[in-house]
Design a protein around this nucleic acid. Structure first.
Length: 450
RNA sequence: GGUGGGAUGGCCGAGCGGUUAGGUUACGGACUGCAAAUCCGUCUACAGCGGUUCAACUCCGCUUCCCACCUCCA
């Protein structure tokens, strides 16, 4: 299995570091709102990643954090006048429901930041002890990036040659260096009831510290894989490395992977452009999780993905074609040509998760099964679906044919037997008007909901 | 200004120094009483301009445009 490591910017052979089990950390949602489809592109990518790892016969121990304390969650909770935990619970629940909708496999652990404050305080304390972090006058604790050689190795940024961005100049924090980031933030008026006691006074953790603390708690000080959206590469992941490695003196993560952003109709998704969609928005428009999943995974994860409604339409038709073929597929020994397509499929997913190429192999299988017969191909479809997770997922079981439709079908069968084509066509139109499509096959009429 | 990633046929979207990606659409054919489905075929695709090469969509340079990151957005 070959994957691109963001750390080296190279394709590398990937295998578990120990015991055939991959320890993987994926940055999860900040639960202050319903997640949008751009967020879900990242989770879908991570789902594909873990499925391909499993496809290769390895086990996965995945940890996905829930950021339930930060500026946005605090602001939202205080504005709504509810406790932080109550406020975030709504969005935690929604997030898990959405993962189910998209058939994203569950991680083994979903640690919430607020359940791990002691671990974070301990890590910050260790960094202070080691002299790479300092307390400022306002009671916040900052990480001193100058004290960590190699800061910038993930983002490949040379900080000695960086000009100070305009955004930093107005910074009111009491930092020694503009690049220093908060490990612990002193309590402020706007935090309201949110806060925890610490050796540095009341406050709350900085954003980055939760991932370092929780990943090491559940996966160890060095683990296999860490992923997220490309925007997390810097500063978030860079800072995670700094925190973890400065504390332990050991390499934090072997392989980092990042997926590109999603655009909508060629533009950046934003509320002002009116092209901002949550998963729920799309479901309301009548698209299924299965169709959305198809669009989200049918582009290489490192390439920008253009989310368009025409792509959803294409997905719907493509899935219908797959369904029709799978319907005919049977158990038994797979023909050689089907196994050839499975080989192509396997090679594609192991080549840095090339899912579009994997789909091509799937469609070659469909086409050949349609022309040569689908006997014995079921197992191949099932095998491919271990990675894709949409061939057998959410197909929407066959709808029961209502009695009045069945009556029309029976009449039509009679008319056809008598070769009364005019009557047959009239009945077909009548059935269509009632919302059902009739197809005539060798084995008789097949009716399906339009 | 710095850094990174892009521009592929009507649309979506892979890819490689020379051989069909795939999906979807449109058109034609086979099949069908007619449809539908299915199969087969077709549509001067590689942003522009130079260069390297026997050969470039694929490598190099320049130009145009797009996206991302540059200190808490997947």
């Amino acid at each position: 299995m070959l994957v691109q490591n963001s750390l080296t910017r190279r394709l590398e052979e990937f295998a578990p570091m120990e015991n055939g089990e991959v320890r993987m950390y994926t940055c999860g949602p900040t639960v202050y709102n319903y997640a949008h489809i751009g967020n879900f592109r990242a989770y879908a990518f991570e789902d594909i990643l873990r499925r391909v790892i499993e496809f290769n016969g390895w086990k996965v121990r995945q940890v996905m954090n829930l950021t339930d304390v930060d500026d946005k969650t605090i602001r939202g909770a205080n504005a709504a006048g509810v406790a932080l935990a109550d406020y975030t619970k709504t969005y935690k629940d929604a997030f898990f429901a959405d993962l189910k909708t998209l058939n994203i496999e569950s991680a083994e652990v979903y640690p919430a930041a607020t359940d791990h404050i002691p671990e974070m305080i301990a890590l910050v304390a260790k960094l202070v002890e080691k002299g790479v972090a300092y307390k400022s006058d306002d009671g916040s604790v900052y990480f001193s990036v100058r004290k960590f050689p190699g800061y910038g190795k993930l983002a490949h940024i040379d900080f000695d040659n960086q000009r100070t961005g305009a955004r930093c100049l107005g910074d009111e924090y009491d930092k020694e260096n503009v690049g220093d980031f908060a490990l612990w933030k002193a309590w402020e008026e706007s935090d309201g009831p949110v806060g925890w006691d610490s050796p540095w006074g009341r406050g709350r953790p900085g954003w980055h510290i939760e991932c370092s603390a929780m990943s090491m708690k559940y996966l160890g000080e060095t683990f296999d894989l860490h992923t997220g959206g490309i925007d997390n590469l810097f500063p978030h992941h860079e800072n995670e490395i700094a925190q973890a490695e400065a504390a332990t003196g050991k390499p934090f993560v072997k392989t980092w992977m990042h997926c590109a952003h999603l655009k909508v109709n060629g533009e950046k998704m934003s509320k002002s452009l009116g092209n901002f969609f949550t998963l729920r928005d799309l479901l309301e428009k009548g698209w299924s999780g299965r169709e959305i999943r198809y669009v989200l995974i049918n582009a290489h994860y490192r390439a920008g993905l253009n989310f368009a409604f025409t792509a959803l339409e294409d997905a719907r038709k493509s899935l219908a074609r797959i369904d029709a073929c799978v319907e005919k597929a049977t158990d038994g020994e797979a023909p050689a040509w089907a196994l050839k397509h499975l080989d192509d499929f396997t090679a594609a997913v192991n080549d840095d998760l090339n899912i579009p190429r994997a789909f091509a192999a799937l469609f070659e299988l469909v086409r050949e099964a349609n022309s040569k017969g689908a006997e014995g191909t079921l197992g191949v479809f099932q095998h491919m679906d271990k990675v894709l997770g949409l061939i057998f997922f959410g197909k929407g079981g066959k709808e029961e044919i209502p009695a009045e439709i069945q009556a029309l079908l029976d009449q039509r069968a009679e008319a056809r037997k008598a070769k009364n084509w005019a009557e047959s066509d009239r009945l077909r139109d009548a059935i269509a008007a009632a919302g059902w499509l009739v197809k005539d096959s060798k084995s008789g009429q097949i009716a399906s909901r339009i």
